[in-house]
Simulated scan of single mutants.
Amino acid sequence: MPTVATVAKPTLVFIHGFLGSPDDWLEVVAALDDRYACLLLTIPERNQQGQALRDWAALIAACEHQWTALLPERFTLIGYSLGGRIAQALSQIWLGRLEALILQGAHPGLGSDLERSQRRRQDRQWSNCFRSEPLETALQRWYRQSVFARLSEQQRADLIQARTRALLDSERMADLLLAASLAGQPDYWAALAQLPVPLLYINGAQDLKFCALAERLAKHRPSLERHQLPDTGHNCHHQTPKPYAALLAQFLTQVPYD
């Protein structure tokens, strides 16, 4: 279980994506932990009573409940995909303790009822896939989505092997996918535009969907720091961990620490 750092270093708090684990950040952290205290969180799959999370609000409440006591007084939040969406929510709850926010491939929110309806239907289909198919089959399908198209065959195989080895519970993943659906997430565009701490948005240069989202976010927030890692897709911290860590280190030199 992660513990609060006791050394006098700025703290970086990492939140993984859907199907991921804290281990996803290890190569990034290895390049940073001489200068920063790194705290790796695990997204909860159940509430305090051990029940499936009902919706987005229940997911954020579970994260806040499980993580608040682990955190130091001040920290930087770093989140990938679902982890980034969670970080957006928690940045509002923990605003007085936040030094900076770093998002990787994280969606600030859908803008229309039609988009939400389409995403809800899509996530229900994926949830049914995880409930009805063997885990490895579901993972093969998941990592063949267009958003992961830039993974090499070896990178895709490594991710599937890691998820299979982690003995993920398919039912829990199906439940979490529905609770965490982008269809039920609030709109964080305005909150990010007004966030009073430094904000960095990272995506792979080949991840065209999130390139467009980053460009749109920059119009809402002209001070946004943006960076596209070349020759990478959605999962760029996995594809190029050392350049990713170097990018974080460069950005963090601009963060004022109390």
Rank of each mutant, 00 (worst) to 15 (best):
A57Q: 14
V147W: 02
S91T: 05
A5F: 07
K9F: 07
L159D: 01
Y143D: 04
T240H: 06
Q154C: 09
A190T: 13
W56S: 00
Q49Y: 09
G50L: 08
A245D: 05
Q92S: 13
L199I: 11
K242V: 15
Y201S: 05
A166I: 01
D187K: 08
L26T: 12
K219L: 13
S223N: 04
A149D: 12
H234R: 11
Q155C: 01
A106F: 09
L41Y: 07
A149C: 11
S117G: 15
E225K: 03
M1C: 06
A246M: 09
V7R: 11
Q140D: 14
A246P: 00
Y143N: 01
E73L: 13
F18I: 12
N128F: 08
C129W: 06
Y36L: 09
L103Y: 10
P256F: 02
K219P: 00
I43N: 00
A162W: 02
L101R: 02
A212E: 13
L176Y: 01
A245W: 07
G50M: 10
I60F: 03
R221M: 08
L32R: 07
I86Y: 03
I78R: 00
P196F: 05
F130P: 09
L224D: 08
A180E: 08
V255R: 05
C211T: 07
M1S: 14
T253F: 03
Q125W: 06
W126P: 03
R172M: 12
L103D: 05
R124K: 10
A190V: 14
L252Y: 02
C38E: 05
Q88T: 04
I86D: 04
V255D: 00
L159M: 13
A166H: 05
